[in-house]
């Protein structure tokens, strides 16, 4: 489904945001991308929704390839994936229901269909009672659930979540993770970047560890993850 082949990303003259990445992500998987701040996790995810293109190498997402992709094709790709951000990227002065309906408006669906679908999506994330409120009035956890509902609106084949729990407390973080797990159980792939090892320590999902722009081998990943978790446990 998603394939990175010898991908390197340099920001301007600064080399090595990502170096020679080879990675394959499969349909239906829940994948955790781990690593400290600035390690290259977000860059890896931005490559998937082609917010940036690789300096060298090729990223293939479903039928789209970064090798030759037009702005129009990028728009089409983004209409088939859902993206969730740490800062939610909601339009704060817009009503919750309008925020969720935005991808459907872009798609050009009819009003009656949008209304029905938004109702179902908000029900799914337990925020139906907030539908007519401006997004700015919600708590951080609620905002993130609205962002997930919006990401789900077009029934994407993959949801990319870039530090979705970064701004949330423990309880809200667990709720968001549970929601993403539920979405994944229904067949949608989820790729989630996080540095919250405590939150994901008991999850059975595939883990990819990124450090200094490189993906560590599975053995290194397991060891590092354990060390981090142990470190976290000791500091508590």
């Amino acid at each position: 489904m998603i394939h990175f082949r010898n991908v390197t990303v340099n920001y301007g003259y600064v080399p090595g945001a990502l170096s020679d990445i080879n990675l394959q992500l499969h349909r239906g998987d829940f994948t955790m991308v781990l690593g400290p701040t600035g390690s290259g996790k977000s860059t890896l995810l931005r490559l998937i929704y082609m917010d940036i293109l690789p300096s060298s190498g090729i990223v293939t997402v479903d039928k789209w390839s970064s090798y030759r992709i037009s702005p129009r094709q990028i728009r089409m790709l983004r209409r088939n994936i859902g993206v969730v951000f740490q800062d939610f990227k909601l339009i704060e002065n817009m009503r919750v229901s309008d925020n969720v309906s935005l991808p459907l408006v872009i798609e050009g669906y009819r009003y009656s269909y949008i209304k029905r679908l938004v109702h179902a999506l908000l029900d799914e994330v337990n925020l139906l009672h907030c539908a007519d409120q401006p997004a700015s009035t919600l708590s951080l956890g609620e905002k993130q659930r609205v962002a997930i509902a919006r990401a789900m609106a077009r029934n994407p084949f993959v949801i990319i979540a870039d530090e979705p729990t970064g701004n949330l407390d423990r309880e809200a973080s667990k709720n968001v993770l549970n929601l993403l797990e539920r979405i994944n159980r229904n067949g949608t792939s989820v790729i989630m970047a996080t540095h919250d090892y405590e939150l994901i320590k008991d999850t059975p999902y595939r883990r990819i560890y990124v450090e200094n722009g490189q993906i560590l081998s599975p053995d290194q990943t397991i060891t590092l993850s354990k060390n981090r978790i142990n470190l976290l446990a000791r500091t508590k």
Partner: peptide, 16 residues
Amino acid sequence: RRQIEIMKILGAGSLL
């Protein structure tokens, strides 16, 4: 500009 950025991420065309 934030709304434009969000719409762009969601795949909105430049005309919209």
